[in-house]
Each structure stands twice: as structure tokens, then as C-alpha cells.
């Protein structure tokens, strides 16, 4: 059994948060540069130029790329042969989150659903995070993190289609979600699609799909093809950067299915999680 120190996890998480909210991820930067090259609309191209300039300033000054530094979202894979010494893994993630957000001068965005009062004094600075734990073989802890903003989350949708709707029904649903969202979620977008499993699992998968680096192909060739088709069709919507009108609305479509395309014989769950052009994501293995 391998042992990991509680304080080491706290520090790793703190550092990951501060770095990834101020440094545009390499895959996003490349995707935005390509979008800038390909964009046919001058107005949208000017917006993309601003975004690249913003990334440069943020990196130089370690200043948040976006003021909405999000809810902290984690997907955590815990090996069965590793244990945390000095506290629990969950507590370490909470403490690392509060430290990262407070010491990085990031925004505390968690609030009470009804009173809308900020939770930073009650629950802790930008606490609680949202954590999905999974148990795996091995002696490592793998932590994926994203700062997920509210604007793109507000236009995300889930549904359960009739099985007869098939692939075409899925495509129509994804197109409707992106079309209805228009300028609001800060395009150009990364579109996460979760297909199958259950109602709730499809939504979780649509979120996890956003963590895949742009340019990494889907291991399932048929889904890889579907991702490309969807991207092309979504870019025909004409929304453009920040909704100003243009050819580059979507940087990537990422699809995940449950356990190699499983779902119930009566159902076809589909969820679409929209991510903005700032897509702040990172991962560490401890």
C-alpha cells in the first residue's frame, strides 16, 4: 500500500488551480489560433484576436483569463493500493480548492440557491467543489480539474430521447442546444455530449467529455466520425465568436458513452454540456 501525504495533495491542487485559471491550456490555445486563421468574418476574427491577446496578458501577469473562475469540478480516480496520510482525500481536495481560489485571487462564486448569499464565509472560499470519485486498480491518484463558468452551464441541456430517434435525433438535439444558446455561452465552444447510461449518467459523461484535449481523437471510430459531422454542421449555424456572426462557432465536439454504448432498452439519454472558449482544465497524477 502506497502512502500519500495530505499536505502534498492540498498543495498540488492549489497550484493546479492557480496555474490553469491564468494560463490558457495548450490545446485551447492551438484551437483558438486555428479558428483565427479559418474565420471568414472580420468581426469574429477581431474577437478571436482579442482572446489570444487576453491569453497572453493573463499568462504574463498570472491574471485570471476570465473573471468567472467557476465552480471547481473534479473527476478523481483513486487506486485501491494508495492511502492518504493525515486526513481524507475529500478534505484535501476541499482545502486545496479554498487555498487555490483565495491565494490565487480568484472569484468565490458559490452561493445559496435561495438567498443567493455568497458561501465563502459559511462553507469556505468557493466551496464546496463538485467531485466525482471512481475506484480503479493501482497505487496512484489521478485528479482532473476544471473551472466551469456559469454562462456556459446555463445553456447546457439533458433529455431522454425515444430509441427510434437514433443518431439523427441525437444530432438534432445537439444542434438545437447550440443554436438556442447563441452568443450567451461565449463561443467558440467545446461541446460535450454524453450518450447512454441513465438520465444522470449522460449528464456526468457530457461534463467529463469536456476534459479531453482538443485534437485527441475519439477511440471509437464511429463516434469520431459523428463528432466531425456534428462539428461541421454546428459551424453552419453562423453564430461565430461571441455570437457576432461567423464560421467558427465550435472548436470541438467530444462524445462519451457509458461502458461502450450501453443504455436501457426503452431509453436513449442524451446530455449536452457546453464549454466556453476559456475551457480551463488540467490534470495531475499523484
Amino acid at each position: 500500500m502506497r502512502t500519500v501525504k495530505y499536505e502534498d495533495i492540498v498543495k498540488s491542487i492549489r497550484d493546479m488551480i492557480i496555474f490553469s485559471t491564468t494560463h490558457l491550456a495548450p490545446d485551447m490555445k492551438k484551437a483558438l489560433e486555428e479558428a483565427y486563421e479559418n474565420e471568414k468574418s472580420e468581426v469574429s476574427q477581431a474577437v478571436l484576436a482579442q482572446l489570444l491577446e487576453n491569453a497572453k496578458i493573463a499568462e504574463e501577469e498570472w491574471k485570471p483569463l476570465c473573471q468567472d473562475t467557476g465552480l471547481a469540478i473534479y473527476f478523481v480516480k483513486v487506486g485501491t493500493d494508495v492511502k492518504v496520510e493525515g486526513g481524507s482525500l475529500k478534505e484535501a481536495i476541499y482545502e486545496g480548492t479554498a487555498k487555490g481560489y483565495e491565494e490565487g485571487y480568484l472569484r468565490a462564486s458559490t452561493c445559496d440557491c435561495f438567498t443567493r448569499a455568497n458561501l465563502k464565509d459559511k462553507a469556505g472560499y468557493n466551496l464546496p467543489p463538485i467531485i466525482y470519485f471512481d475506484l480503479v486498480e493501482g497505487d496512484k491518484i489521478e485528479i482532473e480539474y476544471a473551472a466551469k463558468g456559469g454562462g456556459s452551464e446555463n445553456v447546457s441541456r439533458a433529455t431522454v430521447l425515444a430509441p427510434a430517434a437514433g443518431k439523427e435525433g441525437i444530432k438534432e438535439f445537439v444542434k438545437k442546444v447550440v443554436s438556442d444558446a447563441g452568443p450567451n455561452p461565449c463561443p467558440p465552444l467545446v461541446v460535450g455530449v454524453g450518450i447512454g447510461g441513465s438520465f444522470d449518467m449522460s449528464a456526468v459523461m457530457s461534463k467529463h467529455a469536456l476534459f479531453r484535449n482538443i485534437g485527441t481523437p475519439n477511440p471509437d471510430p464511429e463516434l469520431n466520425e459523428l463528432e466531425k459531422e456534428l462539428k461541421d454542421e454546428l459551424n453552419k449555424l453562423g453564430i461565430g465568436a461571441m455570437g457576432m456572426g461567423g464560421t467558427e462557432t465550435v472548436l470541438a465536439v467530444h462524445i462519451e458513452t457509458y461502458e461502450n454504448r450501453m443504455c436501457h432498452i426503452a431509453s436513449l439519454p442524451v446530455a449536452v454540456n457546453i464549454q466556453c472558449h476559456s475551457s480551463r482544465h488540467a490534470h495531475i497524477t499523484i
Partner: peptide, 30 residues
Amino acid sequence: GKGKRNQDVKDACVKYKAVYFGATGGAAAL
């Protein structure tokens, strides 16, 4: 701000003379 406004806001802009400006979302450091 950023993103769409509803018809009531657009109508008020016409009636009382006001403008809705878009700034680039996510260009927060800039």
C-alpha cells in the same frame, strides 16, 4: 454585457434612447 436581450429591453432602448453594448466575454484580463 454579453449575450442576447429580450424584446422588452430592445423596445425600451428604442423608446427611451439607450444602447446595449457587447464586450468580449472571457477577455477579462484584457
